[in-house]
């Protein structure tokens, strides 16, 4: 088990390197750099000498390979660099924004996983019945609807018309909530973003779960379980569920990246101060250091999620642990 974990982690280092180098080189292709953006903010102007000095100050006058090596060397020392736009170290900027994104992702993932599982099981139990039809149709609707539209409509309905939930932001500023009130306040801000981001994934999980349940239900050991005299509920909970969950667990790992991407849209719609919005701002302002920092952290997050999924999978399926763990 431990060797499996170690091997998986070691295997992720090359992918991390490839992502970073690729991203760095890709960004060189984009027109303009931080200094151009800074100059533009200062009102344009063509002071060539100031521009050159700024470039030298930020180390932008070096050749591309030199800058890449510099960057990687600093990264080894766990230094993500300095954001010229925010005037703070990149690590600080990212750490300020990370909680919102992590909260959003965890909440959406749990929401999508739990309800995807539940509805998938219900749909499979009542296959071709009205429950199945309703669930499958709704699933298709969720899957086919763009999440920004969902978010906007949710704001219109729940925030503007019904005024049940806040329209955006992470917490109510100026109310001075503390303790449990603050937690509840933040939670209420996260309800709509979580639903918006989670619904698409819920639709995917529910379809996978339904298909996988239907397949497992035809397997021989389910017949064995029935021949033992188990009732249908216990056949499902004790024999079918865990087997049917395996494809879904794999999917979570694969979709961690997609979910991060989706959070850019959702954070923008609900003006949540998260990584996604930070990335957007960094691109607009040509803040290369911040952008690379975000890519690095995102890649780490995805690798971490996949790592957890691998471990979970090995726990769920003893056959895997034996094959690779020795």
């Amino acid at each position: 088990m431990l060797t499996l974990a170690g091997r998986r982690l070691a295997a992720s280092i090359p992918s991390l390197l490839i992502i970073l180098v690729g991203m760095f080189l890709l960004l060189q292709l984009a027109p303009g750099d931080t200094v151009d953006a800074l100059m533009a903010q200062m009102g344009g102007g063509g002071d060539a000498q100031l521009t050159a000095e700024l470039r030298a100050f930020y180390g932008l006058d070096l050749s591309v390979p030199a800058r890449l090596l510099n960057y990687l060397w600093r990264l080894v020392q766990l230094d993500l660099g300095f954001s010229s736009i925010y005037g703070k170290p990149v690590a600080t900027v990212i750490l300020e924004r990370l909680p919102a994104t992590l909260c959003l992702m965890t909440a959406s993932l749990s929401f999508a996983f739990f309800f995807g599982l539940l509805f998938g099981v219900i749909a499979a139990r009542r296959v071709n019945g009205w429950q199945d039809t309703v669930i499958s149709t709704l699933g298709l609707v969720f899957y086919a609807t763009p999440s920004f539209w969902f978010g906007l409509m949710a704001i219109v309905l729940f925030s503007v018309h019904l005024q049940w939930l806040p329209a955006g932001g992470m917490e109510s500023i100026g109310e001075g909530f503390t303790g449990i009130h603050r937690v509840l306040d933040i939670a209420s801000h996260f309800v709509l973003p979580t639903l918006t981001l989670g619904l698409i994934f819920l639709a995917i999980y529910l379809r996978i779960m339904r298909a996988s349940m239907l397949e497992v239900l035809t397997l021989d050991f389910v017949r064995t379980a029935r021949a033992k005299g188990l009732d249908e509920t216990r056949v499902i909970t004790r024999h079918v569920l865990r087997n049917a969950m395996l494809p879904m667990v794999t999917l979570i790992g694969l979709q961690a990246g997609t979910m991060l991407g989706g959070s850019v849209v959702v954070e923008s719609v609900f003006s949540l101060p998260g990584l996604g919005r930070l990335a957007y701002e960094a691109v607009v302002q040509r803040d290369l250091n911040t952008l690379l920092g975000i890519v690095f952290i995102s890649a780490l997050l995805v690798i971490l999620v996949n790592f957890c999924v691998d471990l979970l999978y090995a726990r769920l399926d003893p056959r895997i642990a034996k094959e690779t763990g020795g």
Binding site: L219, D220, F221, T224, K228, G229, H239, N243, L316
Partner: peptide, 24 residues
């Protein structure tokens, strides 16, 4: 029927490879 299955009448199947739950 559930009370009889397993207790009164038990069954063995053809495929020993698939007749047992692989995860338990």
């Amino acid at each position: 029927m559930r009370a009889i299955r397993g207790a009164g009448i038990a069954m063995i199947f053809q495929e020993p490879m698939t007749a047992l739950n692989p995860l338990r």
